[in-house]
Simulated assay, not measured.
Amino acid sequence: MPQRHTVELVSVFATGPGGGNPAPIVVDAAGMSDAQMQEVARHYGHESGFVFPAPPGSECDFEFRFWVPNHEMSMCGHATVGAVWLLHQSGRLQRDRLTIQTLSGQVGIRITGHTAEGAAVEISQPVGRIEPLEEAQLSRDEILDVLGLNGAQLAPLPIQNACTSRVKTLIPLASTTDLDALQPRFEKIEALCERIGSTGLYPYATFDAGRQIFDARQFPRASGYPEDAATGIAASALSFGLLANGMVEASARTITIRQGRAMKRPSQISIRFSLDHGRPDGCWLGGPVRFEAHGGAPS
């Protein structure tokens, strides 16, 4: 008989009832085909994570793969956090420092403590690359059109492409009210993102500058759903954009990215820069995880 692969549904980065980004995870995916993994993502309609044995000679602890309904992804922050949390819950981790192989490269993992709901997990991201958009005025006008904004609703900061694992377009808004009220023209997002070399639009606004708290929303290029409740990879990219714009400290102090409120899935991602002689050389991202549903779904 074909092997059954159990899917566990967790909610990652939740900060209130009904919050967080759902992540279907298979912690023992050995033997699953690409078609089977994509079917899990299509069944649930969310980014899904799959845990495999480490490739021979990789010196990693596991290999993770990620799928959305439309295609495979090179890296997914919240699914990585959720998968490590599940591995810890099931007693499959022998230590609190790990290395995971992904299509995006190797990712460091650390268990920083424990909460009432399980391990506190942080994952590494490399130092961010920040670039201005080509044809800046044309791109700005097109972004305003797609998001239904006028120029006065932008903060006096540049629109930037930022990347730690995948390129996100950072769009600074003047207020969290404008952010919450966005009603994008979703049918135009994929073509816009293709033209500006991005995998998603990430508008953001300052909530509390002194406490380094920012609100954001993520509209992916072509994942098979219109909006993400919490996006760790985009949040890590945003942290380096904020650093480049002088909005956060070059320190290990926590940066908080809040997301999902407009979807009624309140979420919160914590980012901390890793430092080399006082200069950020990457970051750690993490947040709470909890079960949404146990076992089931297609294999």
Score class of each variant (00 low, 15 high):
residue 2 P to D: 14
residue 4 R to P: 13
residue 5 H to Y: 13
residue 12 V to Q: 03
residue 13 F to N: 00
residue 18 G to H: 12
residue 23 A to D: 05
residue 28 D to L: 12
residue 30 A to C: 12
residue 31 G to A: 09
residue 33 S to I: 09
residue 35 A to Q: 15
residue 35 A to P: 06
residue 37 M to I: 07
residue 38 Q to R: 06
residue 40 V to K: 00
residue 42 R to T: 08
residue 44 Y to P: 07
residue 45 G to A: 02
residue 49 G to H: 06
residue 51 V to F: 03
residue 54 A to Y: 06
residue 56 P to G: 07
residue 58 S to H: 09
residue 59 E to M: 10
residue 60 C to N: 11
residue 63 E to F: 10
residue 65 R to P: 01
residue 65 R to I: 03
residue 68 V to G: 08
residue 68 V to Y: 10
residue 69 P to Y: 10
residue 70 N to L: 14
residue 71 H to C: 06
residue 73 M to P: 02
residue 73 M to A: 13
residue 75 M to H: 05
residue 80 T to R: 00
residue 82 G to W: 01
residue 84 V to D: 02
residue 86 L to D: 01
residue 88 H to Q: 14
residue 91 G to H: 14
residue 93 L to D: 03
residue 94 Q to E: 14
residue 96 D to N: 15
residue 99 T to F: 08
residue 106 Q to I: 08
residue 116 A to E: 12
residue 119 A to D: 01
residue 120 A to G: 08
residue 125 Q to I: 08
residue 126 P to K: 10
residue 126 P to N: 12
residue 128 G to I: 00
residue 128 G to V: 02
residue 129 R to G: 08
residue 135 E to A: 13
residue 135 E to P: 03
residue 141 D to Y: 07
residue 143 I to H: 01
residue 145 D to V: 10
residue 148 G to W: 01
residue 152 A to M: 13
residue 152 A to L: 15
residue 152 A to S: 15
residue 155 A to T: 02
residue 155 A to R: 00
residue 158 P to I: 04
residue 159 I to S: 04
residue 162 A to I: 08
residue 166 R to I: 14
residue 167 V to W: 10
residue 169 T to E: 03
residue 172 P to R: 00
residue 175 S to T: 11
residue 176 T to S: 15
residue 178 D to W: 06
residue 181 A to N: 14
residue 183 Q to V: 15
residue 184 P to W: 04
residue 187 E to T: 15
residue 189 I to T: 00
residue 190 E to I: 08
residue 195 R to N: 07
residue 195 R to W: 13
residue 195 R to K: 09
residue 196 I to K: 01
residue 200 G to K: 02
residue 201 L to H: 03
residue 201 L to R: 00
residue 202 Y to C: 10
residue 203 P to L: 03
residue 207 F to P: 02
residue 207 F to I: 13
residue 209 A to D: 06
residue 217 R to P: 01
residue 218 Q to I: 05
residue 222 A to F: 14
residue 222 A to V: 09
residue 225 Y to P: 06
residue 225 Y to H: 14
residue 226 P to D: 00
residue 233 I to R: 07
residue 238 L to K: 01
residue 241 G to A: 12
residue 241 G to Q: 01
residue 243 L to R: 01
residue 247 M to G: 05
residue 248 V to Q: 01
residue 252 A to R: 15
residue 252 A to E: 15
residue 256 T to K: 08
residue 257 I to E: 05
residue 258 R to E: 11
residue 265 R to N: 04
residue 265 R to V: 01
residue 275 L to Y: 04
residue 280 P to K: 03
residue 281 D to I: 11
residue 282 G to V: 02
residue 284 W to N: 06
residue 286 G to V: 08
residue 289 V to W: 04
residue 291 F to Q: 11
residue 291 F to I: 10
residue 291 F to D: 07
residue 292 E to S: 15
residue 295 G to F: 13
residue 299 S to V: 09
residue 299 S to C: 12
